[in-house]
């Protein structure tokens, strides 16, 4: 079964200088029990995508086309306020980038973990027992004693683990993790990734994992999509995309990652140019202005070319693109 199925989703924001198309015909799905990564740089539409799924688009945002099917039945783009609230926290949980911002500084951790179980009929004592069990699962030592403590008494990595414990408390079917490791140091980042992997298998939920860090995506995710300027330019299994990327943007992005360079480079690879103005999108391929393969064909919208089963690249030149980034 597919937990989340997004079809042709377009989102516009009304601005003073006209409509800004933040997402254009985004299609992707999150199968049951899988971890799907979303990778892309600032301005690619990652946050808009999450907000559209959660029904949290800003007032000037509007879904202009497409649907977001959750568990095959609910279309999240049309779901009314209360129905959406019933899903959030219960069926769809979220972990955000900043662990401090996700916890209330004036309430004890135990109180916040109890509050999150407000839908359950358990007694207060049973709820606390459940909180302790979850804190143990995310490896907070002395969980019992620490329930009465406040967020500032925990380190950054612990706070993020508490946020994960809270998100997974209701055993949701979909966990959305929005850059959950970006604010953490490398050694903590690794422990959070390993923890997420382990808990995902235990609980059997699906994860939509947003990151700009390619190494984290490679390590954690089964499948991934690559976004650029509000479009999904490439999607497939993580292995296919990393080993056989065919969209020029994906290839350039992979080549830019300094983690790929095992020796000191004279010049680091970059992607020259800037994002197109989303108020005034180019006709056809969204990446053409920064692509050395661009020609007259690219002024028409490229198809989602199937490279292998399940591996798609939105490009006219998926054959020639293998040359890009090869030297880096």
């Amino acid at each position: 079964m597919t937990v989340l199925d997004i079809r042709d989703l377009s989102v516009d924001f009304a601005t003073e200088s006209g409509a800004l198309q933040a997402l254009r015909k985004v299609s992707m799905s999150v199968p049951e029990n899988r971890i799907v990564g979303v990778v892309g740089e600032s301005g690619c539409g990652k946050s808009t995508l999450i907000n559209a799924i959660l029904g949290l688009l800003a007032d000037n945002g509007e879904v202009t086309s497409g649907e977001i099917l959750f568990e095959g039945t609910h279309d999240l783009t049309t779901l009314a306020g209360t129905a959406m609230r019933d899903l959030r926290g219960q069926k769809i949980a979220t972990v955000f980038q900043d662990p401090m911002g996700a916890l209330n500084p004036v309430l004890s951790v135990g109180r916040q973990m109890r509050d999150i179980q407000y839908r359950s009929n358990l007694s207060r004592r049973e709820k606390d027992a459940r909180s302790i069990e979850m804190l143990r699962k995310v490896r907070i030592p002395d969980a019992e004693q620490r329930l009465v403590q406040f967020p500032h008494e925990f380190s950054g990595g612990m706070k993020q683990r508490i946020a994960i414990a809270m998100a997974l408390m209701m055993e949701p079917s979909l966990l959305i993790a929005d850059e959950p490791t970006t604010a953490l140091d490398a050694t903590l980042e690794v422990t959070i990734i390993e923890l997420l992997k382990e808990l995902q298998q235990q609980i059997g939920c699906s994860v939509l994992f947003i990151s700009h860090h390619l190494g984290v995506i490679a390590e954690l995710c089964d499948e991934m999509i690559v976004m650029y300027a509000g479009e999904v330019v490439e999607s497939g299994t993580t292995r296919d995309v990393f080993h056989n990327a065919r969209h020029p943007y994906t290839r350039k992005l992979l080549a830019c990652d300094p983690a790929r360079l095992t020796h000191r480079a004279r010049r680091l690879p970059t992607i020259p140019g800037t994002l197109p103005d989303l108020r005034n999108r180019p006709e056809g391929c969204v990446f053409q202005a920064r692509c050395e393969l661009a020609d007259a064909t690219c002024s028409r919208m490229p198809p989602d070319e199937e490279i292998a089963p399940g591996h798609l690249a939105r490009c006219w030149h998926t054959e020639a693109s293998v040359m890009i980034g090869a030297g880096a």
């Binding site: 050694t187 690794v190 080993h243």
Partner: peptide, 25 residues
Amino acid sequence: AALLSANPEPDPDKVHNRIALPAEV
């Protein structure tokens, strides 16, 4: 060595020989 090994690398097939650091700073 632990810091160097903690760097996630952009290769899904990479076998990690991580030096795990237990406990907090």
